Simulated assay, not measured.
Amino acid sequence: MLHVYGIKNCNTVKKALDWLNENQIEYTFHDYKKEPAQESKLKEWEKIVSWEELVNKKGTTWKKLTPEQQATVVDDASAREVLLQNNSMIKRPVIEVQNELILGFNEDTYKQKLANL
């Protein structure tokens, strides 16, 4: 079973959940607004993807940081600290499937990696 992490009102998360529902793929959903991301989970993800992939630098939360604050995000530890303080800055959605992570929504990627589950 898949585990999807994100925020319900995020358009990208909505697209991902709609795709999963349309393709009858079972999943559990972890809403950051109800249950913030845990440091242990971020450390787990850091073993699979880089901190650069996890930090959503295109979103408004990142853009609200000062240039000085942005400049402090330089490695796993500093990114993790910022992400724990600002869960909405985590790339969305994060989908755990087997020993892999899928970040964001890309229908072709979903078809390739999820359609046969």
Rank of each mutant, 00 (worst) to 15 (best):
K91C: 04
I102N: 02
I48R: 02
L101N: 13
G104V: 01
N87S: 14
K64P: 03
N56L: 00
K47T: 15
L54S: 05
W62R: 05
G104C: 05
T60N: 07
K47Q: 15
G104R: 01
K64C: 10
Q69H: 02
E96Y: 07
L84M: 06
Q85L: 11
L54P: 01
N99M: 06
I95W: 05
L103P: 01
S78L: 12
I90N: 00
K63E: 11
V55N: 05
E53L: 15
L101T: 09
L84E: 04
P67I: 10
L65P: 06
K91S: 01
S78D: 12
V74N: 14
E100G: 08
E44G: 11
N87D: 13
P67E: 15
V49L: 09
L54W: 03
Q70E: 14
E68K: 10
T66R: 01
K91D: 00
L42H: 03
A77Q: 14
M89N: 14
Q69Y: 00
N99A: 13
V73I: 15
N87C: 07
W62C: 04
P93C: 10
I102A: 02
L54Y: 04
W45E: 03
W62I: 00
V74I: 14
M89F: 12
L42Q: 03
A79R: 09
I95V: 13
N86C: 01
A79Q: 07
L103W: 05
V97Y: 15
D75P: 06
P93Q: 05
